[in-house]
Amino acid sequence: MVEKRPALSAAAYAILALGVAIVALPVYVTFVASTQTLDQILEVPMSLVPGTELLANYTAALTSGSERAASAPVGRMMVVSLVVALTVSFGKIVISLLSAFAIVYFRFPLRMFFFWMIFVTLMLPVEVRILPTYEVIADLHLLNTYAGLTVPLIASATATFLFRQFFMTIPDELAEAARIDGASPMRFFWDVVVPLSRTNMAALFVILFIYGWNQYLWPLLITTEESMYTVVIGIRRMIAGGDAATEWNIVMATAMLAMLPPALVVLLMQRWFVKGLVETEK
């Protein structure tokens, strides 16, 4: 701040508080609804004070899901989501580390061609190649499997780039020393490159975990069995019957549960999250 203007500072705090309130409103109302009975929610206007059904709603959601929508238990969906998010984030980190290492530390025919092949995938998000990708998965008999849910999402140009940029900054002396000492390339990879990349991996993990957890279009296409629904898809199926048929108390409890893991990852790993966000966009 350059000068003292108490009125201006007060206005700044007020605007920020208002902004936070607007941003928080939908989640607050969701939380309140998740603590009431369905009848209380259907009263217009619904009360904005938390009710007493918190435990009952969350237990019902986790163990049996929305009975009217005949959904699977949300507990099961959370497990599927977690497996998908973890597989996608670790898978992306591993294969990107390997290919970036090859591209930076080796000279071989077709190196630049491979590099560009990976680079171009940036321009082909799932949304623009929906049907043909679905056909590939169907032909491989991977519908309703974890492999089908995760493998097509694992190739990542951004992660490969991030690691490539980072490897370029590792001093040449380290590789030189490793070579003089007779270390094999993989030894150098494990003992030097991987430990040095830890911060970058943490930053990427936050971004990729959220990416994996929040996938929508892809699981929507390739899961038709209740037992393979991720929690995001599960909610969508619960509200498909329209206002009258929706058990909003259960849906709202499920929504809170679906938001919790990625929100926790962001808040607990805030430092790496900000780093990851800024660096993957470079």
Binding site: V20, V23, P26, V29, I210, N214, M259
Partner: peptide, 21 residues
């Protein structure tokens, strides 16, 4: 901290929260 968490919310869930409101 109070403003960054909506990034973690899935677009489909964001849609559900707002149609409820």
């Amino acid at each position: 901290t109070l403003l960054i968490w909506p990034y973690a919310v899935a677009p489909a869930i964001a849609g559900v929260l707002w149609i409820f409101l």
